[in-house]
Design a protein around this nucleic acid. Structure first.
Lengths: 172, 172
DNA sequence: GTCGACTGCTGCGGATTTCGCAGCGGTGAT
DNA sequence: ATCACCGCTGCGAAATCCGCAGCAGTCGAC
């Protein structure tokens, strides 16, 4: 039950999530609207969403389940790390020699590293670390990240104050 | 089958969320466990959470409502922006002369800017911009951010590939 | 063209969950 | 001791979730 119909459909019916070349599904307007509803409130009832986007409760439920299965979105609780006991966060800019992606994978495997992105510019990788205190952060940066073979240099930006953190993509 | 004796509330009954000096609530182990459950699945039923943390369904519901009201957490859908039609993202490092916080506030007001943090290090502010295409990104950086009075310089890191994006704080 | 397979939507009951409220016990202040 | 407050429990009613059967539209094959 995991069919991947690779076809181009023009009109209406099974166009909610078409696969594109790179494997990331293409979303139609209705799925986008559903996501938008759930970005406002992740627990909003399916029937209410259906009324908002013009679909039945069951249809919304099936679409949401599919979006979750495909990994397009996830419905989760997000918090301010400070209130859950993580007092030190930092963005770490990393320069790499050799294979950037393998370094990025190594960072991804670290539980303290919550965000990893490969970039163009004067850093090859940006990674966000969430730590309990300074010692913990120091350990992550100096003993774990800089120890990775291929890491040429790092620069750290310790967070002083988080001003904005939104999850309203597509709501604009 | 995770039934744990997390709730030894013999000691203290009304300690689920006490206010500390700076106004951010202090969370006890049970609330943390609830958040953890909702980080795994934001739609998990209250009864299931209650079974996991050792509370009744109604108690979990009241706690969750309180956590939401206090702004400690929010339950939302999160997506990979690429799949929802935003093809260009960038982290922007900003140097400021004068009041850093007022610049940060101005950035916060921009809908394209999804993340703003004041930092120590060679940037005063890091901001993440989510845009539809290169033109849009260029407009945000050159015409809007650099136009802010007090912005001395900016440096951009265009995202090539998002490798990790987690919301599992406290799950470790 | 018809046929068949596939996909997505609807509508429907039954099971489950959510919701509101009254009551209870522990804590701290008066 | 008394009182007010707060969090937890338990319970019935309402709303929601869930699975399933049926229908309609598209696509590919013949």
């Amino acid at each position: 039950m995991h069919s991947e119909g690779v076809a181009s459909r023009s009109a209406d019916q099974r166009d909610s999530a078409r696969e594109s070349r790179n494997g990331t599904p293409q979303l139609d307007a209705v799925s986008l609207a559903i996501i938008q509803q759930l970005q406002e409130d992740g627990r909003r009832p399916y029937a209410a969403i259906g009324k908002a986007v013009g679909l039945s409760e069951a249809a919304v439920r099936q679409r949401v389940q599919k979006l979750l299965d495909q990994g397009v979105m996830q419905i989760v609780a997000v918090t301010d790390p400070l209130t859950v006991g993580f007092r030190r966060q930092a963005m770490i800019g990393i320069n790499v020699e050799g294979d950037v992606e393998s370094i990025a994978d190594a960072l991804t495997a670290m539980s303290e590293v919550e965000y990893v992105v490969m970039t163009a510019g004067s850093f090859d990788i940006l990674a966000e670390a969430v730590c309990e205190d300074d010692d913990h952060l120091l350990d992550v940066i100096n003993r774990r990240i800089r120890a990775l073979p291929g890491v040429r240099s790092t620069e750290s930006f310790v967070y002083l104050k988080l001003k904005k953190q939104t999850y309203m993509w597509g709501t604009r």
